[in-house]
Design a protein around this nucleic acid. Structure first.
Length: 270
DNA sequence: AAATTCTCCTGAAGGC
DNA sequence: TGCCTTCAGGAGAATT
């Protein structure tokens, strides 16, 4: 599924094709995504230039002269650049047609979103309350420590809470907790500042590593999207129930935490 | 306020 | 081979 690194990879891969280019047409084949694709988007967008494409959390912000298109890939979404508007398959819900290419959203499970705002995107309700980007210096162990003092819920919930830090999904939450030796079930307010510093460091480290792997898949935008990308080779615990822990050999456990599958080693993670 | 539950949807996987 | 059931998963909304 597209987590932050894949969204970042998508952003970098697509931007060169659409920056500065004019949107010639909009095709909406299936408006029923997580929220309906707004009516009248075609007349709204037609003729506008794409000024920038940026990632915020797992959102992509496509800015034009008169507003911003907010895209989210949900858990099965993918964006591709096609040389031209070609025949659509059943889950190709949305196209932005440019003069020289077509940007197409495919999303079988339709958890994604295409929204439009004419206000500053950082003020949009979906963006406004997001915490800092995990790869910025604003996000660090001190930040996690400060935001965990009144949280008795598991630390895994804390780092997956977008108001605390934006865009850390299930895979990277599991991985970073393993790499920092923290039990995902441990209450947020029962973790020392030093351990939070290690955790913040590992979150950055694992996201950066995955982004650089995503970079190697850049050319492969046609890749089917349901399965993990190349970074799956580097996963230590995610999806590894029953496998030996890479650190100590004990069997990796799986347990639901906050309605999410969690994988960990009960010897290495305390 | 914090924590938990519900919800959207469909491909994949498992059972028989 | 094929049908039926179950489940995962991002994240906002509703509920406790």
């Amino acid at each position: 599924m597209p987590e932050l690194p894949e969204v970042e990879t998508t952003c970098r891969g697509i931007a060169p094709h659409i920056l500065g280019r004019e949107i010639r047409a909009v095709v909406i084949r299936q408006p029923k995504l997580r929220w309906p694709i707004p009516d009248g988007l075609d007349s709204e967008l037609k003729g506008l230039k794409t000024l920038s494409l940026e990632r915020r959390a797992k959102y992509l912000l496509l800015q034009t002269e008169s507003g911003t298109l907010i895209l989210h890939l949900g858990m099965s979404g993918s964006l591709r650049i096609l040389p031209r508007e070609t025949a659509a398959t059943p889950h190709d819900h949305f196209d932005l047609v440019y003069a020289g290419c077509c940007l197409r959203l495919r999303d079988p499970r339709r958890f994604g979103a295409v929204l439009w705002t004419t206000a500053a995107p950082e003020e949009h309700p979906l963006i406004r309350n997001l915490g800092p980007e995990p790869l910025t210096s604003e996000f660090n162990g001190e930040w996690l420590y400060q935001h965990s003092r009144n949280k008795s819920a598991p630390v895994k919930n804390l780092i997956m809470n977008g108001k605390v830090v934006a865009g850390v999904g299930n895979i990277y939450a599991n991985e970073s907790l393993f790499l920092s030796g923290i039990d995902p079930r441990r209450a947020g307010n029962r973790i020392s500042k030093g351990r939070y510093q290690r955790l913040a460091h590992q979150i950055k480290s694992v996201l950066n590593a995955a982004i650089s792997q995503g970079g190697t898949t850049l050319r492969d935008f046609k890749r089917d999207d349901g399965r993990p990308g190349y970074f799956s080779q580097a996963l230590q615990v995610y999806g590894k129930e029953g496998h030996p822990c890479p650190g100590c050999g004990r069997t990796i456990r799986r347990q639901m935490i906050g309605q999410r599958s969690s994988f960990f080693c009960s010897r290495c993670q305390t």
